[in-house]
């Protein structure tokens, strides 16, 4: 167990190092940020000075070495635009995004799992067919369009929920959250639903496929032969078996929820790191882009590790030891 975790940590470090190289060079060979940052009145000398101040006049490998040295100390550079530490900027915006992604994930499980189970256990019923048809829509409709329709319906048309922004936040154990007030929930409802829609459809499909398969297994028939109630068979025997693929996929999807909530955050003016990324890209704010990608890489690596651990808790046949091949 411990050996497994150490080994995985070493692999994670390697992945992060490789990503550092790829991202730094990938971002730094595109365009010249200096021309985005100067004002038109500046003369050549002022431009050169600005470049020197930002370290942009040195050869790229030298820039990389400086970047590496700072990265090792947790410093991924200063934002060209904000003048602040890039990593701080992102971490400052991260709680908002995490909150949104978390609510979306909970929605995906709370809505998707029962619907998928139902559709899997009663595949012939009308309601099941309807659920499956809607899940196809959930997969196919583009996020930005659904987001606009949600605003149009619930904010503009019915006036039930606010269209943009985040509710008032309170700090708990150093984490800013807006989920403790009704107003906060009103604000998070629409963007979270928008973000969750695809994941709900995904969970429905996974749960349905799993339940259909599990319902035919001998252990379900044997459980019935023991005289167990229907609710115990579905809630324990079937559910625990289908949770294995769902946990795996949702774990990875949580990463993508955080990393790619860009569209949703933009439409609902949610002050998260997705919007920060979009601003950074349009202004070629390289340190912020690099820092953003690195944060996402670390996030994915961590989630992968956690998924492996949860997986072994769900399925006792998975042993977290090194393969002796």
């Amino acid at each position: 167990m411990l050996a497994f975790i150490l080994r995985r940590l070493a692999q994670a470090l390697f992945v992060i190092a490789a990503m550092l190289v790829i991202v730094f060079f990938g971002v730094n060979v595109v365009g010249d940020p200096i021309y985005m940052l100067i004002s038109p009145e500046m003369d050549q000398q002022q431009i050169a000075e600005t470049a020197r101040a930002l370290g942009l006049d040195r050869p790229i490998w030298e820039q990389f070495l400086v970047f590496l040295k700072n990265a090792a100390q947790g410093d991924l550079g200063r934002s060209f635009v904000h003048g602040e530490s890039a990593i701080k900027l992102i971490l400052h915006r991260m709680p908002a995004t995490l909150e949104l992604a978390f609510v979306a994930l909970v929605l995906a499980i709370v809505i998707g799992l029962p619907l998928g189970l139902y559709a899997g256990l009663k595949p012939e019923s009308r309601l099941s067919r309807f659920i499956m048809a809607v899940s196809i829509l959930g997969f196919s409709l583009p996020t930005f369009w659904v987001g606009l329709m949600l605003i149009l319906t619930f904010a503009v048309g019915l006036g039930w929920l606010p269209a943009t922004g985040r509710g008032p936040t309170v700090s708990i154990l150093g984490l800013e959250t807006s989920l403790l007030s009704l107003k906060g929930w009103q604000h998070v409802a629409l963007p979270a639903l928008n973000l969750a829609l695809l994941k709900i459809s995904l969970v429905i499909r996974l749960a349905r496929a799993g339940a259909r398969e599990a319902a035919l297994m001998d252990y379900v028939k044997f459980a019935r032969a023991k005289g167990l109630s229907q609710s115990r068979i579905i809630g324990v025997h079937i559910l625990k078996n289908i949770m294995i693929p769902i946990v795996t996929v949702l774990g990875l999807e949580f990463g993508s929820l955080v990393a790619f909530s860009v569209v949703t955050e933009t439409i609902f003016a949610w002050p998260g790191m997705g919007r920060l990324l979009l601003e950074a890209i349009t202004r070629l704010d390289r340190p912020v882009i690099v820092a953003y990608v690195m944060v996402v890489v670390v996030l994915f690596v961590t989630i992968n590790l956690l998924v492996d651990l949860v997986y072994s808790a769900l399925d006792p046949r998975v042993r977290l030891t090194e393969a002796t091949s």
Partner: peptide
Amino acid sequence: MIFQDPMMTLNPVL
């Protein structure tokens, strides 16, 4: 009732 395949009748995750 006792079933044919003992590999399949017990739930593997419980």
